[in-house]
Amino acid sequence: MKTYTYTEKKDTRSGFGAGLAELGRTNPNVVALCADLIGSLKMEKFIEENPERFFQIGIAEANMMGIAAGLTIGGKIPFTGTFANFSTGRVYDQIRQSIAYSGKNVKICASHAGLTLGEDGATHQILEDIGLMKMLPGMTVINTCDYNQTKAATIAIADYEGPVYLRFGRPTVPVFTPADQTFEIGKAIKLTEGTDVTIVATGHLVWEALEASKMLFEKGISAEVINIHTIKPLDETAILESVAKTGSIVTAEEHNIIGGLGESVARVLALHKPMPQEFVGTNDTFGESGTPAQLMEKYGLNAASIVLKAESVIKRK
């Protein structure tokens, strides 16, 4: 079985900052907007190198989304930066009307998504953003798993014409994807080959899925792990090819199971190949204060939970 290792842990938001800085050097149409969270979004380098292409909006996210939509009229490619909660739930109608329905080329870049924001608690830990964004017609939804993938995704979405929601997080997590891996929107990445169960994971849960696959291997269970960084458009082919082999599937995400990746996968299976599925995610609940590790443990978003779900889904075959 293929195993993955890492030499350092980094935050995915720093991958965004690095990608944005690179875009600042390579694409003169890229502009950045922030609602008073420059440091949290790691946007300093872009701002330092391109002060005229940065717009500090202040604590006014609705205005930021509208200004971003307006900047596209004139050929700019705006990247907005704030926390995931304020990037989506707070400004849903602005995104819906001024960006998605208007077909504007805005890149909504959202940090501090999910429970791993930690101690700030439920007001800031959005677990519904993937659902909100994937429901918008024409919106591409991406949730990256580590520093390298976030950097690559940030660069890739500048070349894609259309609105994109790019979701990443606050804590440091293992860097295990290759630094030179090209990011292809909508193209899943198979991380391990397996025959007993497919584990489809996104964001911070991808590493946990790899850890789970090792634990399962020791129990004699062969798991195929797929990194599904793009939730919409979903790589249906990759999922269906995998489950044709394994006959069961576990989805894993740092998000409510209602409205998340798991439901998108379930739809694909219901249409093409109904089979047992188990869901790793929060279950219709808000988060709370705590360390990221404590929260992921309490809400069942770690390797151990994935192992349990894998074992139970296999029994349902």
């Binding site: 717009f55 939509a69 307006g70 009229i73 602005q94 009307q97 329905y101």
Partner: peptide, 21 residues
């Protein structure tokens, strides 16, 4: 150049377009 109807959004869009200019 923009969808409108849900009120209160047009000035932000106009500002963005003005800054692009």
């Amino acid at each position: 150049r923009i969808a409108s109807g849900s009120l209160g959004q047009g000035m932000s869009v106009a500002i963005g377009a003005a800054q692009a200019k």
